[in-house]
């Protein structure tokens, strides 16, 4: 495993907000969706492991009162992967859960996204994930909205 050294940190040439959005999409994707996206991009071959996929723990923190000092709620399983493309671009993935294969696919997509001329294609290949998620969220919001309640206070006799 390469020892992380801040000096080796990747230059922030990429927009971290956009990169985070792609990482988030990969995290929400089903493994078969990532397979499909990579197959569509036709460029998964030759990616080598910078770090073999590995499952570990991240301590999930909350805040006292929701907005105060942090406290440790409990751990979550997290799987990470890091790959390098033949062209030198590196990609990372950190996902909840224990799916090593999926983390590696996501790391490969992250690496491809690092290549400026491939960025748009990667985002397009992941667009179906975004639209599926949006549909699911809308449907969920509609079901939840149907349970929105209005309580009425009954006047007490003696008041």
């Amino acid at each position: 495993m390469p020892h992380p050294n801040p000096a080796d940190r990747q230059p922030e040439a990429s927009d971290p907000v956009a990169r985070r959005a792609v990482m988030a999409l990969c995290g929400q994707a089903r493994p078969e969706e990532l397979h499909r996206a990579l197959a569509q991009l036709g460029a998964a071959e030759g990616a080598e492991d910078l770090r073999p996929p590995e499952t570990g723990l991240v301590m999930t923190r909350g805040r006292i009162g929701g907005d105060g000092r942090p406290f440790n709620l409990g751990e979550a399983t997290v799987t990470r992967a890091a790959v390098r493309l033949p062209g030198g671009a590196t990609g990372f993935a950190y996902h909840l859960g224990r799916d090593r294969a999926k983390a590696r696919l996501a790391a490969t997509l992250d690496a491809l996204w690092q290549v400026p001329e491939r960025r748009a294609a990667v985002e397009a290949a992941l667009a179906p994930v975004a639209s599926r998620r949006a549909e699911e969220r809308t449907a969920q919001a509609r079901r939840i909205a149907a349970t929105r309640v209005n309580f009425f206070t009954m006047a007490r006799g003696e008041d």
């Binding site: 390469p2 992380p4 940190r9 990482m23 995290g27 929400q28 979550a76 890091a82 950190y94 859960g97």
Partner: peptide, 16 residues
């Protein structure tokens, strides 16, 4: 849930 991996230096979305 977000996590800042040392090697990236920015917070990464782990999932929900």
């Amino acid at each position: 849930v977000e996590f800042v991996p040392e090697e990236l230096g920015f917070s990464v979305p782990l999932g929900e």
